[in-house]
Structures are given as C-alpha cells and as structure tokens.
C-alpha cells in the first residue's frame, strides 16, 4: 500500500506541476522516489502541522494542488481547526493523507494511535473522507482525490493486511464496492484494514461483503437499496464505533430503512498495554477471532430460512 501511495504521488506530481507535497517531517523512506523524481514539488514543512495546513491553504488559494501528508493522529486530529477554517470554509482543493490510522502504532501508545479521525471530520462541511482497503483501492482513491474540486481526507491504515481487489476497482464517488457475493440475510460492510476480516467472515457465512472507500459522502440511496435486501448489517472499522463508518451507515438509514446493526469498532477505551499490532487488535477485540465471536451469534439471529 505504501508503494502504491508513493507511486500515486509521483504519478500525480509528474502529470501536474501544480501538485506539491507537504510533509510534517514524516515519511522518511516513503518519499525517496518522490524526492528523486520531483524535488521541486516536495516541501518538508517541519514538525509544525498547524502552520503546514495553513500554508497548504494559501498554496491552494493561489492555484496549486497541495497534498498534505501526516500521521492520522496529527492530520487531521491535531489540525482540525485549520482544516475547518482555512481549507473547508473556502472549499480549497487540498488532499490530506493520514497515515498509520487506527492501531498501527501499537508500540508507541495513545499519542500515535488514531481512531477518532473520521468522527472528527464527518461533521466538518465540504470535506470528503476516503478510507481505501488495499493498494488498488488506494490508487483509485488517490486519482479521485486529486481530481476533486474541494478538500479530501484520505485515511491510510495498516498497510500489509493483503489485497482485497484483484485489480484497480471502478470507484464511484460515495459508493460501496461489493467484494464478495453472498445470500446470507446479513450484509457485511467494512472499511480500510477491516475489509480483509469481513471477507473472511463473509466466506464463512456466505454473506455479501462491501468495501466502503468513502465514508463521506455516502451514497444513501445505495445503502438503502442494500438494506432493502438485507435483514441486518454488520459494519467493521479500525476506528471508534462512534462516529465512523457504522455511525454513517446508521444515520443514512435512520429515516428510510432502519435496520438492526452490529457495529464492530473501537469502544470507549484507550489501549492499556503495549505490544504488536496483532496484540493491539486483540486488546480492542478487532482480531478475526474476537470479531467472529461477536458476529456469528448476531448473524445467526437472521439465519436464512
């Protein structure tokens, strides 16, 4: 996924001289290729994220196409106000990329773990939120993000959980992408790193699995149509169960087709212990075994007759 990201950056910058990449002194090896190929379009703004976002706003206002890179704990959470006032209020075309979202920085602790970024941004007008599940989806998302008229946040989680798509998916703005067919009355909707786990459970249950590359906008008509053919949904995200994908789906259906939903995500807790990514996922009940324990009994209530 990181290679795909690096490639997408180089592609964007070589095709459009207005593209500039700003980083808050992060992404050491990640930008080697970019710096080699597009040195004039690379700006290390230092460990000063608030200024970086303001500068990006100024660059965008003057006609450039800034891509702001940071860890998702900082971009967008630390700079939420700059994103709101300096960028979103004027609908400036700035692409924010938040790397290491979720529990990726399992050993570094709470400061670098990031599971409130989607919730923070969902209430800010004019910004799109993308959350690709693998390298193919990331490449497709980057292309859409760079063509967007306004601001976009692109969330990147654990990079090496494996491919979901066999090739570049055909993405439509705001739409879910079906990645598994199924006839179970419970449909599974997942985003980012959790799509792989949803696929594994989808295989076990013979349930359909949908990837959500967009959290915002979310095509509410598509979600309602999906709800019309299902008895219940399960949503999966490496993000707070409050205010993320699950919340967005729930809200999308609340006026049209309310549906029982199990929202798998991070609960009302910070990480208590240190360890590997797998350990952190277990601690928060997001590893496959823990998720299975929650999803199977829920799905059994709507077992196909």
């Amino acid at each position: 996924m990181r290679t795909a990201f690096s490639n997408a950056l180089v592609e964007a910058a070589t095709q459009d001289e207005r593209v500039v990449l700003l980083t808050g002194d992060h992404g050491y090896a990640l930008f080697d290729e970019f710096r080699k190929r597009c040195p004039g379009q690379y700006i290390n703004a230092g460990i000063a994220e608030q200024n970086m976002v303001g500068v990006a706003a100024g660059l965008a206002k003057a006609g450039l196409r800034p891509i702001v890179y940071g860890l998702s704990a900082f971009i967008p959470v630390r700079v939420l106000e700059q994103i709101k006032i300096d960028v979103c209020y004027e609908k400036l075309p700035v692409v924010f990329t938040g790397d290491g979202a979720g529990l990726v920085y399992s050993t570094l602790g709470t400061s670098h773990q990031s599971f409130e970024d989607i919730a923070c941004l969902r209430s800010v007008p004019h910004i799109e939120i993308m959350s690709p599940c693998d390298a193919h989806e990331l490449t497709a998302c980057m292309r859409m993000a760079l063509r967007a008229e306004g601001p976009v946040y692109l969330r990147m989680g654990k990079a090496d959980v494996g491919q979901v798509h066999a090739s570049l998916p055909d993405l439509r703005r705001g739409q879910l992408v079906r990645v598994r067919e199924g006839h179970h009355p419970v449909a599974l909707i997942a985003t980012g790193s959790m799509v792989k786990a949803a696929c594994a459970l989808g295989d076990e249950l013979a349930a359909s699995v949908w990837s959500a590359p967009w959290i915002k906008p979310l095509d509410t008509r598509q979600v309602a149509e999906l709800a019309a053919g299902a008895s219940a949904f399960v949503t999966f995200e490496e993000h707070s169960a409050a205010g993320g994908l699950g919340g967005a789906v729930l809200e999308a259906l609340s006026e049209t087709r309310p549906l029982p939903m199990l929202r798998v995500g991070i609960g009302e807790r910070f990480s208590q212990t240190c360890g590997s990514y797998a350990h952190a996922m277990r601690e928060h009940g997001l590893d496959l075994a823990s998720v299975r324990e929650r999803v199977l009994p829920f799905a059994a209530r709507w077992k196909a007759s």
Binding site: M52, G58, K61, A62, L64, Y89
Partner: peptide, 23 residues
C-alpha cells in the same frame, strides 16, 4: 482569510507568498 481564531491567517499568508515565489 477567515481569522479571529488567532494564529491562522499568517500561515495562509505564508502559503500565498510561497506560491507567488514558486511561480
């Protein structure tokens, strides 16, 4: 700029100056 929430406008101004310098 949209300001009054202080400490915002200068950074945007720096970005504007930087864009002008680059171009």
């Amino acid at each position: 700029v949209t300001s009054g929430t202080l400490g915002h406008g200068l950074s945007v101004g720096v970005g504007l100056a930087m864009a002008a310098a680059r171009k």
